[in-house]
């Protein structure tokens, strides 16, 4: 069997490519939902972490240290086979909760570091000029926060896509699971894994491309 035939057998034969696309769609769904919820929750955490209410500040600190220090696979298994084992939640819902929690901890820290990098004098100047707190945040802090946080946020998105590759442990058939299935069926793990890596790379570069495109739009 020559190499082209082998590639055909592994990735295309009997509609195998459709199953790969389905797996990719599951990966994208989990990643996108987790990113959305994780960003909202992470912003709240950052707000609490930098706020003046002591119990919330401590709670946010503790949450961030525990979650950032735990492997995401352990957290996923703990939630699916422990905390939510009897709740009847679907595996995808538990996966989205897990990755949202994990992303939130990272987003909270990246927002905090971006806020700390800002020049406080600019906000004070805006306030002196008569801007309300909200106006100072919206017109002075937020645009700079986005600019500073964006490169790290972009890495967080790509990391999140890669973290989701462990969902096979909770009965979800995502892209990694599909790739593993193909490798097992065809007994060609090396070529199949390289194919899977190329798809993940393409997804990552799509994310980089979207960020790059938004940067270019902003500068035009």
């Amino acid at each position: 069997m020559d190499f082209t035939d082998l590639l055909y057998k592994i990735f295309l034969k009997d509609g195998g490519w459709l199953t790969i696309l389905n797996g990719l769609w599951v990966t994208v769904q989990i990643s996108a939902l987790s990113l959305l919820l994780g960003t909202v929750f992470g912003s709240l955490l950052c707000f609490f972490r930098l706020g003046k209410i002591k119990p919330l500040k401590v709670a946010a600190q503790v949450y961030i240290s525990i979650i950032r220090g735990s492997p995401v696979l352990m957290l996923l298994m703990l939630l699916f086979y422990g905390v939510f084992a009897r709740q009847g939640l679907s595996p995808i819902v538990v996966a989205v909760i897990t990755f949202s929690m994990h992303t939130a901890a990272h987003v909270a820290e990246l927002l905090r570091s971006a806020l700390m990098a800002l020049d406080k004098g600019q906000v004070e100047a805006a306030r002196t000029l008569g801007f309300s707190k909200w106006q100072a945040f919206k017109l002075v802090t937020f645009p700079q926060l986005v600019r500073i946080a964006k490169p790290v946020y972009q890495s967080t998105v790509v990391n999140l896509i890669q973290w989701t590759s462990v969902v096979g442990y909770v009965t979800i058939t995502d892209l990694t699971r599909v790739i593993n299935n193909i490798a097992s069926r065809t007994m060609q793990p090396m070529i199949t894994i390289i194919g899977g890596m190329i798809i993940y790379l393409a997804l990552s570069y799509l994310v980089y491309g979207i960020f790059h495109w938004t940067d270019r739009r902003r500068t035009q």
């Binding site: 009997d14 459709l18 199953t19 593993n180 299935n181 193909i182 097992s184 069926r185």
Partner: peptide, 17 residues
């Protein structure tokens, strides 16, 4: 029933998943 799909021909996943 939980299957791993990684031990053909005893246990495998077809191209249609």
């Amino acid at each position: 029933v939980g299957v791993t799909g990684d031990l053909p021909p005893l246990d495998l996943i077809l191209p249609d998943n």
